[in-house]
Design a protein around this nucleic acid. Structure first.
Lengths: 120, 120
DNA sequence: GCAATATATTTAACATGTTAATGATTTCGA
DNA sequence: TCGAAATCATTAACATGTTAAATATATTGC
């Protein structure tokens, strides 16, 4: 992740904040519990992360229409801009890693990690 | 790691503190930089971890014979006792995970992770 | 309809991760 | 040998990880 972190530091984002933006960009607005699954964050961490991202204007929180315990988290135009600025470079970095490891080994790694997650 | 953490919590240890004890048990007394490599800890984290472990009596810090910048960290009898109490169970848990994943996939995972580390 | 329970999230408290700055000592070269 | 540079470790500051407790709202069963 080191090259990714280096890229993000220029936008003032952490690796986790970047993951939140990417998930919201891909899935649209999400409730906290859904977001936490896709972004691989525990809810307490995510709460803090989303709070600071909301303060900086990268996301907004709306009321959930049916359930007042929940909220809905949505990416802003400013968050979108960050995605647009970094998506290409991030994809390139990921491709480099995949190629260095070998595409076959890379797929195998993802498979095994999936299995590991399901073990618990 | 969840079952390991559960086991350790009964001894009041974290996963990282357990790793420090295991490395010191296996390699004998070590300087901070050597310990950090074997235990996969960054030095600032390790400094805090070793400080709290020293306070609790699991390790001791001695002077380095030739270089006063360094110290030597050593496991105590009390730390040894923790190892003795938990080693068997930890090995059993590790074996269970390896078996669930399949011994072959487990080895493949270790290989790929080694390669990943060398990429940087 | 209301109390008990369940659900969704946040807060709290402490441990670790991460990067940069600082401190202390050693080493090297003029 | 003396001062600059290198080395080793710690401290500082902030972000996240992790577990337990607290809060707020919904749901269920009587």
């Amino acid at each position: 992740m080191s090259p990714i972190r280096q890229m993000l530091s220029e936008s003032g984002l952490t690796e986790q904040q970047w993951r939140v933006l990417r998930v919201l960009n891909e899935h649209g607005a999400l409730e906290p519990s859904q977001l936490s699954k896709h972004a691989a964050l525990l809810l307490p961490s995510q709460t803090r992360i989303v709070q600071s991202m909301a303060q900086k204007g990268f996301v907004v929180r709306r009321e959930h229409p049916n359930d007042r315990r929940r909220t809905v988290i949505e990416i802003t135009d400013m968050g979108q801009a960050i995605i647009n600025d970094n998506a290409a470079k991030a994809a390139e970095i990921a491709a480099q890693i995949r190629d260095k490891l070998g595409p076959r080994r890379f797929e195998t790694l993802l498979d095994i990690l999936d299995d590991l997650r399901d073990l618990e």
